[in-house]
Amino acid sequence: MMIERRAMERIPINRAARLSFDGIRGTHPCVVRDINALGACISTPYYVFANEFVLSSEGHSGIFICRVVWRKVTLCGVCFLLRHRWPKPANDSGELTSVARHDC
């Protein structure tokens, strides 16, 4: 019997999704095995080397910015990061954008 270490129980969904990696063109297939408000378990037909990536689910308009917490061959557990853009001051040139992060 496995001991549950998560703060919130995950809901099994087994839903097709896509991953986007910084610096790599296009999107890549994956399956979201289970999910909750804090993270998910994702399986892919390849090893995920990136530490952070964007997860988009088919049929949903939103995206999740993910950080890998653990990896096991083609399975990985991720936590979701919250990123918010701050309002730009009237005299801002727009060159820098502030980003707030919720770290896992």
Rank of each mutant, 00 (worst) to 15 (best):
M1A: 13
M1L: 12
R5N: 13
R5K: 15
R5H: 14
R6E: 09
R6F: 07
M8W: 00
M8P: 00
E9R: 10
R10C: 01
R10T: 06
I11Y: 05
I11L: 12
I11E: 10
I11D: 09
P12G: 07
I13G: 05
I13N: 06
N14Q: 10
A17D: 03
A17V: 02
A17E: 01
L19I: 10
L19C: 08
F21P: 06
D22F: 14
G23H: 13
G23T: 15
I24M: 15
I24C: 14
I24P: 11
I24H: 15
G26M: 07
G26T: 09
T27P: 00
T27Y: 02
H28K: 10
H28A: 02
H28E: 08
H28W: 14
V31E: 08
R33Y: 03
D34P: 05
D34M: 00
I35Q: 00
N36C: 11
A37Y: 05
G39Q: 05
G39F: 06
G39L: 08
A40T: 04
A40Y: 04
C41D: 02
C41A: 12
C41Q: 07
C41M: 10
C41T: 10
S43F: 07
T44S: 11
T44D: 03
P45E: 08
Y46K: 04
V48M: 12
A50T: 07
A50P: 06
N51T: 14
E52Q: 08
E52P: 00
E52I: 01
V54C: 04
S56Y: 00
S57E: 11
S57H: 03
S57M: 11
E58Y: 04
E58K: 02
H60D: 01
H60T: 04
G62E: 03
G62A: 09
I63P: 01
I65R: 03
I65C: 04
C66Y: 01
C66N: 02
R67P: 02
V68E: 07
V68A: 09
V68Y: 01
V69S: 11
V69R: 14
W70K: 11
W70D: 07
R71I: 06
R71E: 04
R71L: 03
R71T: 08
R71D: 05
K72C: 05
V73K: 14
T74I: 09
L75K: 08
L75D: 05
C76S: 10
G77H: 08
G77Q: 04
V78M: 01
V78L: 01
C79Q: 13
C79T: 13
L82N: 13
R83P: 06
R83H: 13
H84G: 12
R85P: 11
R85H: 12
W86M: 15
W86C: 14
P87F: 05
P87Y: 03
K88N: 07
K88H: 06
K88T: 12
K88L: 09
N91C: 00
D92Q: 00
L96Y: 07
S98Y: 06
V99S: 08
V99Q: 12
A100T: 15
R101V: 15
R101P: 09
H102P: 04
D103H: 15
C104F: 15
